[in-house]
Design a protein around this nucleic acid. Structure first.
Lengths: 227, 227
DNA sequence: TGTTTTCATTGATCGAAATCAAGTCGGACT
DNA sequence: AGTCCGACTTGATTTCGATCAATGAAAACA
């Protein structure tokens, strides 16, 4: 991490709206703010590595963090992608264990970090924090289950379609939106090679999905759902 | 659940050694024991279904529980398999949400259940419980990440080999052990069709793995690791 | 503005595993 | 023991997506 600093007004604002802190009582928020440090990461920098002793809890303020695991010969498999407001699941290790995966900045990112020992300490006195952590983890476990099942049940075009649907404002109305990150990143998140994502998009074109650059337009969400 | 009862001496014993309760202080253990109910499930019975409002926390006392998700046309994808002592991860939903998956008894099973509202209540007063829940979930998230990465990085024979290695007492020495459940269940857990598991076993035969029924013998764990 | 580098698409090929279809084994039961 | 039924295995086929290779499009940079 390049430089560390106390959170300024803007960072405090973002932190307050983040998933974890938003459900806490004022005193717990204050206690967490007290121990927060802000750091920025240039693109591609590692935040932590799989197997390292876990000593920090991290929350994304801006940018995207890619969390992946390595196999012996260096290939990478993304297991989760975190954006602004997200607590990085792999860093919630309250019992002195090690990080289960590697976290890397997918683009320049701003991160809040909390010393895990102190978090544990606060959680020991303030149950709302411990419960908030458990809730966040439960939500993440649920996402992980969904990803695992999705991988096993659906083809690449189906996974892409489901991802697009999940990120568009519902309803049967035509929608446009911007992908918030590179396609290669999206491919990784969906467990696909970039080529497979490309082909999926080109197949979906005949189902009313138009993509140019990061701009996505969906003619009929309902039709997509039935692919 | 067929019948519900207060935990007897044997069930209390098992519960005390279970992952969740084993790390709690005596008072929290007592509070949890207070609200525990024991039930047994015949094979194939559902404990809860995906999408149902989550009102209970479950812990496996004996037998195996299969947790899976369904796709629209009824195909199933196993996301986790829980055995004696395990807290069923998909049932840890502290914030009034819904179960993220379906839990089914893979064989006759004994289950401890705790009313979630009361668990939340106790956790609000006793942080050690909340922290224990968070730790359990963190461990499960880590497993889920490992499964996801394993799926994406390794072939069927590799996944089977890794599973066997993880379940044999380490060391470079020849080992024998019994699979604790049916092969079709193992196949599901590894994200494979039963046929693929069969073929993986038959390929591993040439690498010193012998399987007859549920009996597995491994000549050289080290060699297996390098497949 | 042009140059360079990274990212995305498209094509061709290959390999892994799902699926479909028999067949075999093994245990439970009469 | 014989029979039955579910679990497992084996074979043939097909589909999907990874990989390799080459091109095309966009950003980033000077």
């Amino acid at each position: 991490m390049n430089r560390l600093m106390k959170p300024g007004a803007r960072e405090r604002e973002t932190l307050l709206n983040a998933g974890l802190l938003s459900v806490l009582g004022v005193e717990s928020v204050a206690a967490m703010m007290e121990i927060a440090a802000i750091g920025n990461l240039p693109a591609r920098q590692m935040l932590f590595r799989e197997g390292e002793p876990a000593d920090m809890l991290h929350c994304v303020l801006s940018g995207y963090m890619r969390v992946y695991k390595l196999d012996p010969d260096g290939r990478e498999a993304d297991v989760e992608l975190y954006g602004p407001g997200d607590l990085i699941g792999a860093s919630v290790v309250l019992d002195g264990g090690r990080y289960a995966a590697t976290a890397q900045a997918a683009e320049p990112a701003l991160i809040a970090r909390f010393d895990l020992k102190r978090v544990r300490d606060i959680a020991g006195r303030r149950p709302d924090l411990a419960i908030a952590l458990a809730s966040a983890l439960s939500a993440q476990l649920s996402r992980a289950f969904a990803n695992l099942a999705d991988d096993r049940l659906h083809t690449a075009p189906q996974r892409v379609a489901r991802h697009l649907l999940a990120h568009c404002p519902v309803e049967g109305k035509p929608t446009s939106f911007r992908l918030p990150y590179q396609k290669s990143l999206l491919a990784g998140k969906l467990g696909l090679a970039p080529e497979a994502l490309s082909r999926a998009f080109s197949l979906l074109r005949s189902h009313g999905v138009n993509v140019r650059g990061r701009l996505v337009h969906i003619d009929d969400p309902e039709a997509l759902r039935r692919i």
